[in-house]
Amino acid sequence: MDGMQIASAVFLVLMLAFLFPRAKQMFFNSPKAESGDWNAVLLPLLGVVGFVMLLIWLVGQ
């Protein structure tokens, strides 16, 4: 384990410490999803997955 790995871990832990209160607040105070909302999210995210797979296929040629 070198110094870079330890420094990276410290960096990520600090990030976690900073993000955690905000995540907690956002998780409990975000508006609730209505019917069809998650479908509207899944469609573009599946598009992203398909696009990344296309890029992987292209660079693997």
């Binding site: 871990a9 990520l12 993000l19 956002m26 975000s30 508006p31 209505e34 999210v41």
Partner: peptide, 20 residues
């Protein structure tokens, strides 16, 4: 898409924990 906020933050925290 404001309903996604909490889920995205939780997902990010889980991803950072896995990175550590």
């Amino acid at each position: 898409f404001s309903f996604m906020g909490g889920f995205l933050m939780v997902g990010l925290i889980i991803a950072i924990l896995a990175m550590v």
